[in-house]
Amino acid sequence: MLNAERAPVTGRKVQLMATCLCDAFYDDVAAATVEVLEHLGVEVVFPEGQTCCGQPAFNGGDWAASRKVVRHTVRTFAGEDPVVIPSASCAAMLFHGAVLEFEREADAAEVSALGRRTWELADFIVNGLGVKTWPGRYEARVALHRSCHSRGTETVPAAQALLGSIAGLSLVEFGEAEQCCGFGGTFAVTFPHLSSAMGELKLEHVRAVAPDEYVSPDMSCMMHLGGLAQAEGKPIRARHLAQVLRDALKGGPRS
């Protein structure tokens, strides 16, 4: 699912798509994204009219409903500046999913054009801006979650490079890292048994290596896994990559 035809980044100004999950639950992740980008000298614009990437309806098969939301997103993020998203899933929706559901639509070209300037955060830092290492300090053993929408994209190597270069941070590997956590959007509620069974398995693998933190480029998976762990009374410390990058600049994990 590589976003191969992406335009090179020339300026130092981006539009932030915060994602609906950060808008509703994880404001600190969106704030961390802003601080991380600003640290790199990037001007961050937040288009106020933004809502959602349209993925829930796309995955649900209601492409007419999804296209309504995608069209709104295309209008909201007009212009030439890159769109940066702290989510591999929403990014893939814009550069892959939306393109698929607009194949036979008159405005397909505009949707593809948005996809070509859409970036997941870690990918943008490493491959868009050419920043390969991260400063600061972060004393922690960190396990990196491979969200499924980062499969086959540059996000995982980018996140590994950034995290791996932080002083004090050690990356720990765990079993079956390439297996899905079971979130899957509406799958989590239409297939509750399978979804939670997959989540349990993921938690088992992660807990087996006892990382200090479980870090993801996507909050959706963390909402599911964190929620499962919490409901079991055995919470895990789930964090977004942007939070780790920001906190490294401030000297380490927040308690």
Binding site: A18, C22, D23, A24, F25, Y26, D27, A30, A31, V34, F46, E48, T186, A188, V189, T190, P192, S195, S196, G199, M223, H224, G226, G227, L228, Q230, A231
Partner: peptide, 25 residues
């Protein structure tokens, strides 16, 4: 909301902080 029920059967929900990021920004 059936979807919310199905979610909560196995998982806890995070705190709703709708609009907080927009205020911060």
């Amino acid at each position: 909301v059936p979807a919310l029920q199905a979610w909560a059967a196995k998982r806890s929900l995070p705190e709703w902080r709708g609009g907080e990021f927009r205020k911060w920004m």
